[in-house]
Amino acid sequence: MKLLPQLFHSSLGKKYIMAITGLGMLAFAAVHLAGNLRLFLGPEVLNSYAHGLHRAEESLWMIRVCLLVLIGLHVSMAVVLTHENRAARPILYERSRLPGASHASRTMIWSGLMVAVFVAYHLLHHSAKAQVSLTGHDFAAFRTTLADGTACHDVFRMVVAGFSQPVVSGFYIVGVGLLSHHLSHGIEAAFQSLGLRNRAWDAAVRRLASGAAWLLFVGYASIPVAVLCGYGREALQ
């Protein structure tokens, strides 16, 4: 039996793909957060980190292509599976209670699609530096000089300028909140789909899923909250 057709044609195979791509994106979210949190170490650390990333342009593109493949597979499998799942019950119950099903588990396709929209906005906002933030700043014009004299993009000022707008911060916090809600079920389900769960591991997998989801939420949300509380305001002077 050919492995790949079997993967894409069976319901279990599609769930393996969902799980593996999901965990891959989770790994990216964790690394991305570790990078973002350098904001709290000051402008010099964050800007030289960002500058270093952009100097490794080839590997950066490799990572971007990998992420695009992960997102493409995850979203396409989600759409196909959702369509198949709906088709399996053409006539709905008059009263439907879905016993035992958590809110996150019932709404994965919606939280997932909203996170996708948020990611698209986020990329326009910070990577393409487009003027969708309504902050009135030209992010591309933010330049700074590192301690060693290198001129580079002032990421620190861009982040502070963006998050100084309560609307931008609010939207961001809602976005990472949705992501965490999605992950609180997604991580647990990924372990289940890959068969990496039994009665002995069950409690540990549940704790890992909710712990990781909360950690990502607190980590990501801490940045706009800190900026709204006045952190880094001097960079805008």
């Binding site: 279990l12 799942n85 879905l98 035992g100 099903a101 994965m108 789909s193």
Partner: peptide, 30 residues
């Protein structure tokens, strides 16, 4: 349809079968 790990099945199973059998099948299938 496919499994989205909501746990509704084990909540209603009259024989209290738990969804760890599904994890075992996912393992067997892989």
């Amino acid at each position: 349809g496919g499994c989205t790990v909501t746990g509704s099945c084990e909540a209603v199973c009259p024989k209290n079968i738990r969804i760890d059998v599904i994890a075992r099948m996912n393992r067997e299938y892989g």
